[in-house]
Amino acid sequence: MVAISPTVEAAVADIPDGATILVGGFGTAGQPVELLEALVRGGASGLTIVNNNAGNGEVGLAALIAAGRVRKIICSFPRQHDSHHFDAAYRAGAIELELVPQGNLAERIRAAGAGIGAFFTPTGYGTPLAEGKEVREIDGRHYVLELPIRADFALIKAHVADEAGNLTYRKTARNFGPVMATAATTTIAQVSQVVPRGGIDPENVVTPGIFVDRVVVPATATEPHHEEDQ
């Protein structure tokens, strides 16, 4: 059963210190910036964050890192031209980094959501990122054993939700959202608009409501500008 949270602060209020959180987005596209900034104001610390990157500029995930709330980040591409808050924390030894190839990151999250105990992938075989991991040769090809990444919370950004928690996304802002929604105990989606049941054509649902626990429309949300997406 999905709850419609009145504010982003209310949506993240029960995230405790030490939580593991899947954070959607590729750069800032699809990043749930308003939920992350509510988390900064809320004060939870010692967090483990799973995201493709490690913050851009000053907002959202970058603000959470700058506030010293992130103990560890699991990501594929931390270093960017505007990742200065992560860079500083990393060089100061204040943040732990687990670097994961992007596709392995997505698949490890997918595995968690799909109840898969582990999987063998060819990606990373023979590289430093596979060191210490079990390797198996299957039909003449080498594979590396990878474990699922599950989390206490997922914070994602979608486009439109209905009151059943069904979600649609916009363009490449979809990225990790649908996979992350499946892999957390509690999934919180910030959206541009909540419509009544039946307001999204069932054929167009990308994330079914079973994967979603809370939806919230941030006060600053802009109106969706592509009505056909609903």
């Binding site: 591409f77 270093r79 980094l97 190839p101 992007q102 596709g103 060819p122």
Partner: peptide
């Protein structure tokens, strides 16, 4: 150097 891999390994192998 701060390491970053992105999708390079997945692309190269896949």
């Amino acid at each position: 150097a701060i390491p970053a891999v992105g999708g390079a390994m997945d692309l190269a192998t896949g």
